Simulated assay, not measured.
Amino acid sequence: MLRVFSVAYWAFIGITCVVFFAGAVVVWLVTLPFDRRRLVLHLYSSAWASFYVYVNPLWRLRVIGRARLPWHGAAVLVANHASLIDILVLFALFRPYKWVSKQEIFKVPLIGWNMRLNDYVPLVRGSSASVRTMMDHCDRLLTAGSPVLLFPEGRRTPDGSLQPFKNGAFDLSVRHQVPVYPIAVHGTRAALPRNGVILREHVSARVEVLPALDPADFPDSESLREAARQAIANALQQD
C-alpha cells in the first residue's frame, strides 16, 4: 500500500506543480514593480511547499520557535540535512529568506524555474568557482536585507548522524555581522529514505528554531560554526 500511495503522492505533486507554478508567475509579475526582494513570491512558495506536507496523511509537522526568526533584516539560517523533505518542512517557517541549493534542483521543470524567479542561490558541489559565485550572491542578498538559509553539512547525512559543518555560512555571518539562527530538523529521515522515494509509515517531524548566535560573541567564524553545530546536535539528542 505504501508503494501505491507513494506513486500517487508524487504524481499528485507533479500535476499540481503546474497550477502552483502558474500562480507563482502571476505573483512574480504583479509584485515585481514594488517587491524587489520578492518577499511575496517567497511566502507564496512557502505555502506551495507546505501544502504538500499538510495534505500528506502520513506526516505530522510542528514548527517550534518560529517567532525567533526576524521579518526584517539580514540573517544567516543554518539547518541540518537528513532528507529530501527537509526543504518542504523548512518552507513551513513562513519567514523571508533565500535558499542556497544545489544547482541540479534549479534544472527541475516548474520547481527549479520557481527557484530562479525567487532569486534563490544555486551551488555546484565541489566547484570552487561556484562557491565563490554563491558567496558573492549571498553577499548581495545580505546587503539588501534578505536572510539566507544554508545546509552547512553540504549534503544529506548518509547515516543520520550530524556531519561536520562547512565554513561558508559562518564567514557570511562574520563578514556582515548578522546573527546565525541554528535550526534543528527532527524526524524527516524517518519519513523518506536517503536513496528512495517510497514513503514510510506515519512520521512526526518538527522544525525547531534555536536561539540566535551573535558573531560579535565569538573570536572567529570557526568558533561560531562549532557553536551552531553544537546547538543543533544538542537539540537532536533530545529525540
Rank of each mutant, 00 (worst) to 15 (best):
L2H: 09
L2S: 05
R3Y: 15
F5Y: 15
A8F: 05
A8N: 00
A11F: 12
F12G: 01
I15F: 06
C17G: 11
F20R: 10
G23C: 05
V27S: 14
V27Q: 14
W28E: 10
T31K: 13
F34W: 15
R37F: 06
V40P: 04
V40E: 04
L43P: 01
Y44T: 00
Y44C: 01
S46M: 02
W48C: 05
Y54K: 02
V55Y: 03
V55P: 01
N56W: 08
R60I: 02
R62Y: 06
R62A: 10
V63P: 02
G65V: 02
R66L: 06
A67T: 13
P70D: 02
H72M: 06
A74R: 01
V76I: 10
V76W: 11
V78A: 03
A82L: 13
V89E: 15
A92P: 08
P96R: 09
Y97D: 00
K102N: 12
Q103G: 03
I105P: 07
I105K: 06
K107F: 12
P109M: 04
P109F: 12
I111T: 15
G112Y: 15
G112N: 13
R116A: 13
L117T: 06
D119W: 09
S128Y: 09
S128I: 09
S130A: 08
V131T: 11
V131H: 04
V131I: 12
V131S: 09
R132Y: 08
M134S: 05
C138I: 05
D139N: 15
R140Q: 12
R140A: 14
L142S: 08
T143A: 14
A144K: 12
G145D: 05
S146K: 07
P147Q: 09
V148D: 02
L149C: 11
L150C: 04
G154F: 02
R156I: 00
R156N: 03
T157L: 00
L162R: 12
Q163M: 12
P164Y: 07
L172W: 10
L172D: 01
S173Y: 10
V174Q: 11
R175T: 07
H176T: 11
Q177P: 01
V180S: 06
Y181M: 05
Y181W: 14
P182R: 10
I183H: 14
A184N: 13
V185L: 04
H186Y: 10
G187H: 14
T188I: 03
A190K: 13
N195E: 15
G196C: 12
V197Q: 09
I198Y: 07
E201P: 01
V203S: 15
A205T: 14
A205C: 15
R206T: 06
V209G: 10
P215S: 05
A216L: 01
D217N: 13
D217H: 12
P219W: 15
D220N: 14
S221F: 01
S223I: 03
R225Y: 03
A228R: 11
A228I: 02
R229V: 00
R229W: 03
R229H: 12
A231R: 11
A231M: 00
D239T: 06
